[in-house]
């Protein structure tokens, strides 16, 4: 566990020192707050008014925006994880450490996940405090919503890492990662308009549907937990295979 934590700490420190994390933080916070207060959530069947117009002490609008915002955020944080290392030649240096490829994959993922979790908390906690000062906020649903957003973020990040491990360049990793996550998000939107078998599959494989029907409304469901754990594990496993394949060459 120690090598994993050591590499994870190094990765997290490096991420906090790079401008990418701070630009992503600023963009994420500005977007989430702007959408929450001004726009609402006018997409799909779950239509929610902006906070002031709705007049209800709830973070439902913010939680509804988490999946689409992660479509851009997770690949932005993950794009440099492997693609940039390879481009700058530091990947070989990293893999030359006395650490297995699997440990390196987990360490990088944990570092990225910790950063993403910090970012989500930094964006949502002040929102929750201000809303709670204006009305009776459901703290149970809010805390599960934040925890669920972090778990959802982990799954999106693992897909971002997978794409980064396969891509040649950062930009390519970002674009393909965003497209992949965007398609998964759109899957959730299409559920109401699909025939039954396709809708059942879309519901089963849409990360947004698992989050919005579960943790975002205060419901902790073991099925959602298993889904996100399997998705993250599968993505990390394929990332490992990609990295290991290069290391063996």
């Amino acid at each position: 566990m120690t090598p994993i934590l050591a590499v994870a700490r190094r990765e997290l420190a490096a991420a906090l020192e790079s401008p990418t994390a701070w630009i992503a933080t600023a963009a994420f916070v500005a977007a989430l707050h702007g959408l929450f207060f001004v726009v609402g959530y006018p997409i799909g069947q779950l239509q929610l008014p902006p906070f002031w117009a709705g007049g209800t002490a709830s973070l439902a609008v913010a939680f509804a925006w988490i999946p689409p915002l992660l479509v851009g955020l997770a690949p932005a944080l993950a794009m440099s994880a492997w693609a940039e290392e390879r481009r700058s030649g530091t990947e070989e240096l990293l893999l030359a450490w006395p650490i297995r490829s699997g440990e390196a994959v987990i360490a990088k993922f944990l570092a990225g996940w910790a950063l993403l979790a910090l970012l989500i908390v930094v964006a949502i906690a002040p929102l929750a405090l201000v809303v709670a000062s204006l009305g009776d906020l459901d703290w149970g649903a809010t805390l599960t919503g934040i925890a669920g957003a972090i778990v959802l973020g982990g799954a999106c990040l693992s897909i971002g890492h997978l794409v980064s491990a396969l891509a040649r360049e950062q930009l390519e990793a970002f674009l393909i990662g965003s497209l992949t996550l965007g398609a998964l998000w759109a899957l959730g939107l299409a559920i109401g308009n699909l025939p039954a078998p396709a809708a059942a599959l879309a519901h089963l494989f849409s990360p947004a549907a698992h989050y919005l029907d579960g943790a975002a409304v205060g419901l902790l469901d073991l099925r959602d937990g298993v889904y996100f754990a399997l998705l993250t594990a599968a993505a990390l496993r394929v990332t490992y295979l990609a990295v290991e394949g290069r290391r063996s060459r």
Partner: peptide, 18 residues
């Protein structure tokens, strides 16, 4: 795994106040 979980797991907790 996701399909099996969807069909057979039924453990859940409603942590919302309402």
């Amino acid at each position: 795994g996701a399909r099996l979980a969807e069909r057979h797991l039924r453990l859940r907790a409603d942590l919302s106040e309402d």
